[in-house]
Design a protein around this nucleic acid. Structure first.
Lengths: 253, 253
DNA sequence: GTTCGTCGTGTCTGTTCATGCCCGATTGAA
DNA sequence: TTCAATCGGGCATGAACAGACACGACGAAC
């Protein structure tokens, strides 16, 4: 096992467990504690974990993102299935906008290495993930970066989306329903999502079934703006049928 | 079997298996390890795999960049000292532009948690690192993302810098000298740097002494544009004095 | 057909890298 | 305050690496 592989795995363990310690890692990987310390130092220098006595803590967990990690773990299965289904929607060649969000991030992580695409995103984690993908021409949408979601918002982002036209948009929402449309808690983010929706020829909404019926503060569109909804089997067939009557195709992964 | 065929096959094996190692490839293809190393080097240069000790890993499999901090492990010490010295230049309150580059990234990593700043950057790694800093209001400059440097360039970036005015800019250069000014290998990046220089009231150049006297393809400014040069003690006192006569303060960390 | 340059490959040699071990310094919990 | 766990730097070692050079195949120009 190569050192970078081990570091990658350590990072994953840290993110999963919220913390790792030197000795168990040493045992786990069958190397000495010194080597683990070096790995943690490297990860620390890369800004991915924060070194503490006896181990390390992933940075995202550090101060005030318990919910990002938590959200990551809840409904993980559903999100994975949704992400997998969304892969089928990638254009083989063309332009795609990726919204911020953990489910969309999973799709991004799963884009095959042979793919050849132009991707536009305002999400920092997704951009970081795709930056070294050899087949992807990545365009970053700038703006003020919100701490919680690590996505760019405000004037620069709105203007950028106003200037482009993409084949497909993968968008996330915190709540969706026929009555209340697509909603999210933050007004600035809703504005960016709305701009992204307007910039795409085909809108694909990724949302697990728990989001159905929820409504949040800021509305950024109607369900009728969505061409395809990819969700999980937690959405009842009746609800799905009702949505399809509104003109939105539904995939229950 | 021709070299490009072999490389294509190596790439396929790497993507299928997630990793390859030099010795098995050498056996597999009935060539020496040196030849495999050359193949891997070529694939690495093409940005298709990441070289590791003993083998290679296809890009995208690792979602972190182990070497962005370590890539130029040469002069690591100097860079650390320069970064430390640069911390003193942070405004206590105000706006700062951070250019892309490993040295600048180290400064970003070292910004104290209690700092309260507005930061603007077009560097993806730096943005990722600062995104969850509680005291920093982060503004991301968008644009096409260059694979090699993970920095945004082109129209969006140029326009964004044209619209702002910051207190301090920390800028990096691949070469600097009184005669040839500030240079970097890439034209698009030079344009962004030039725009950033124009957007800042005070320009601080971070460059280790090995960069002195070097000149690269694209020039983005003169040494006289720089208010403060932070370098290491490898720059001779005479050179430093000469630069200071040009109106640029010099710190040899 | 000969000659020359180029390219891919192999060989050699000194250098770098990853890791393990050791020891004094530091830390944090009782 | 004390003491055991942990850390970090230095050093050793074997594997892996990089650069220089040589050899042979191939193709172009004469």
């Amino acid at each position: 096992m190569y050192a970078p592989e081990r570091q990658q795995e350590i990072l994953r363990l840290a993110r999963d467990g919220g913390r790792v310690d030197v000795l168990s890692l040493a045992e786990e990987f069958q190397v000495t504690a010194e080597t683990i310390r070096r790995d943690l130092k490297a990860l620390d220098r890369a800004g991915l974990v924060r070194r503490v006595h006896g181990g390390a803590i992933p940075v995202g967990r550090l101060d005030f993102e318990p919910d990002l990690a938590e959200r990551e773990s809840t409904a993980a299965d559903e999100k994975d299935r949704i992400a997998k289904a969304a892969l089928a929607e990638l254009p083989t060649e063309g332009t795609m906008i990726l919204d911020a969000g953990t489910t969309v991030a999973r799709v991004a992580a799963a884009i095959p290495l042979e793919a050849s695409l132009t991707v536009v995103t305002h999400s920092l984690p997704i951009a970081a993930r795709l930056a070294d993908h050899p087949g992807i021409q990545l365009h970053l949408v700038g703006g003020r970066v919100r701490h919680r979601t690590r996505a760019a918002v405000d004037a620069w982002a709105l203007r950028a989306y106003g200037e482009i036209r993409a084949d497909v948009l993968l968008v996330a929402a915190n709540g969706f329903s026929a009555e209340h449309g697509l909603t999210t808690p933050d007004l600035a983010e809703a504005a960016v999502k709305r701009a992204a929706v307007a910039a795409a020829r085909r809108v694909v909404l990724l949302a697990d079934s728990a989001k159905h019926g929820q409504e949040h503060f800021a509305r950024f569109g109607d369900l009728s703006d969505v061409d395809l909804l990819i969700t999980d089997s937690g959405l009842s067939p009746e609800d799905a049928a009702a949505i399809e009557r509104g003109g939105t195709e539904v995939v229950r992964a």
